[in-house]
Write a protein that binds this DNA or RNA. Structure first.
Lengths: 225, 225, 225, 225
DNA sequence: CATGAATGAGTTTTCATTCAT
DNA sequence: AATGAATGAAAACTCATTCAT
């Protein structure tokens, strides 16, 4: 889905895959409430009793599931990143023959994977706007421990590999892979930020057109049709 | 400076225009120290005595200049945005004949202003990386009051006008001006974010090449050489 | 009780009606401790941890019941005044036929109500000396808000009505009702003040003889036996 | 002045004897400003910078005249009490032949001295309402040191002697002298309190009529005309 | 498991006092 | 003498965490 020039179901089929479905019900309520509270006031600014209130439970109950506020935040980052990482692995993995092969992928394959990556992030962003906001704001937080980093590593790997290969294939601009990756992410983050500020309204159609913009930002001019 | 295709001095001539130069000396030390502390730990996470320590003053002195931590944060946002707004007005104003004219500007003028806008933001980002980080993180903070919004209005106006005109001139993609604006900003923000995460190293040369990427992201393919 | 020329039980049957009986236990401990602390050092001079210590609770607990020291003081004034107001309404209400009637009350009825009013204040003062001291000292405090004033209004009404009627009946001196009221109160307050300074010792018998003095201070000579 | 049945100048000849006239000008401004601030917010609640502002001087200047806020308050109490004590000694001293004599004074002499005492307090109260309020509120303050007590002793002596003698002369009620004293003071304090609360307006005429009320409160019925 | 009142260490904030000018 | 910005100890207040129920 979300691929080029085809009739598709709407990107957002709300509730497609709700957050934290494999957590116990109370734990899930806590995670969702904490997500909201952290986005609204930041991790340091959010109060535990307020999270409990939003979750409809007693303050003390939170401590039956998470040993501290910091660990709750850390867990949240880990689970959200894990969710994206899993989706990336499932939907945006490189074509089998490309994987590990010494030769660069064919340009269409680069484009296909680019679209798949974009769709994973864009889809996540549309369905879970607040989760995206949390990840955006707390990418640098002190509570992002090494565990979290480790669980993200495969996704990071996949992304770096994609841009490295795409550049080797002559598809991408002559910029460091991380810069390309930052640019792609930036287009998405920019849209998200302005949406949160109320300056624009995001929908699937806009995000699909922004995919083109992002592609033009990272690819070399010659490859354009 | 920072203009198209010419040999230029480095973008960063460090110290060109330091932050908060018109504030009283003690006030300035507080603002600089608070900026650092807020970037490191967030507004809620930063401790007042730590800010005082960084500023080399006593805790109580901060309260002679700012009535509360929140107001200090708010003031910081306002002054930093004001600084960017002033620079935009000075360096990225539309060409006089274009201003208010019913006809759309010529494509080269659009590109000229695009470059000027980019240079203002990129230059600010290079010279004041932490200030940029603070603005990025606290664009949505509760302490961003209506005063701050008001002081930013002229800059916002200029940016919206630019993208509206550029689209009317057929230079920009057929996307809402705010979306174009978000995209341009996003490329810059993405680079900044990844730089802060230590994933890439930013310098003037990279930013200049990203300007091309950003341009390609917002402009229509036809206008490319 | 406390009525004219009859053998009576002692005015003070300690514990007859303790203060703040309808408050939650912890809240009550706080109110009692705060009353003591405020009387000893004044509202501004009293320290919250000291109040907590006297109440046998933790500092923070006070803030679960009262949002600030000022509001605690304000609440204290309101509840003490409310207590007196209720007692006045119960024990010193005007005789039914007098109430609202156009004719002035009979002199004996004036004396009866005077005694009842005196007894309410004198009884409160004997049983709750520190509460009286607090009210005396903080009648003018900045923390006496409009709510407190409103809750006191019915009592004030009753007192003014009494002195107005008593003067109309030719029983009281030809002085403004408020001046008569101030005089009656003054005799009581004076005794209380000197008692607190250790210059005299107050008991029910003395207060009963002072009732005569107060009566002679406000009534016209002719009505005396 | 203020004596019985004679044509008199108005009690308040404003500025008759301003407060703290023998203090250095700056010292006097401080004392007057502190008096106001202490009455408004209490000694603990008043701020030194606010006193300085009211006095029209710099904060530090206060410390050239008084070593601490407490000592400033203490000095204020001492000077105000000293002022009243001096006036009592000058205007309300017992008649020479009565002084120390074993026999009780004649009733008219008791009344004369009663009036003189009343006039001293009433006159002070009218001319210096805020000073009276300060003394009323801070009679029990922790900052009233032994020095202050000592300087007040002669005045206290005079008052106790008066009521003791008056009672011995059969003029006053059969109550302890201190109770009589408290009653007289109470009538005055009551009027003052209600005046401060805005419930009545005090003037010389009212105070003169209250003198009669106070007299009737302390004297035995038989002596009344 | 769940509760939520209570805790007290850790903050923010105040303000009497100092001292360089 | 006078100034008033700066100090920092002391106060008010907050809130993550605990634990008796």
């Amino acid at each position: 889905m979300f691929s080029q020039g085809m009739i598709q179901p709407p990107i957002t089929h709300s509730g497609a895959t709700p957050l934290f479905v494999d957590a116990a019900p109370t734990e899930r309520r806590i995670l969702l409430a904490a997500l909201d509270a952290f986005v609204d006031r930041g991790v340091h600014g959010a109060r535990i009793p307020e999270i409990a209130r939003r979750a409809g439970i007693a303050t003390g109950t939170i401590y039956l599931y998470f040993p501290s506020k910091e660990r709750l935040a850390s867990e949240l980052v880990a689970r959200l990143r894990g969710r994206i990482a899993a989706e990336l692995a499932r939907r945006a993995a490189p074509a089998p023959d490309t994987d590990g092969s010494p030769e660069a992928p064919a340009p269409p394959e680069v484009r296909r994977q680019f679209d798949a990556i974009w769709d994973v992030f864009a889809g996540f962003m549309l369905e879970h706007e607040r989760a995206m906001a949390f990840l955006d704001l707390h990418m640098h937080g002190d509570y992002v421990g090494p565990d979290t980093m480790a669980s993200w590593a495969p996704a990071r790997e996949l992304l770096v590999a994609h841009f490295t290969a795409g550049r080797a294939a002559g598809v991408y601009r002559d910029l460091p892979p991380q810069t390309l990756r930052a640019t792609m992410a930036g287009v998405l983050i920019g849209a998200h930020k302005f949406s949160r500020m109320g300056e624009l309204e995001l929908d699937a159609a806009t995000l699909e057109r922004l995919r083109e913009a992002a592609w033009d930002a990272v690819s070399r001019g010659e490859t354009r049709p």
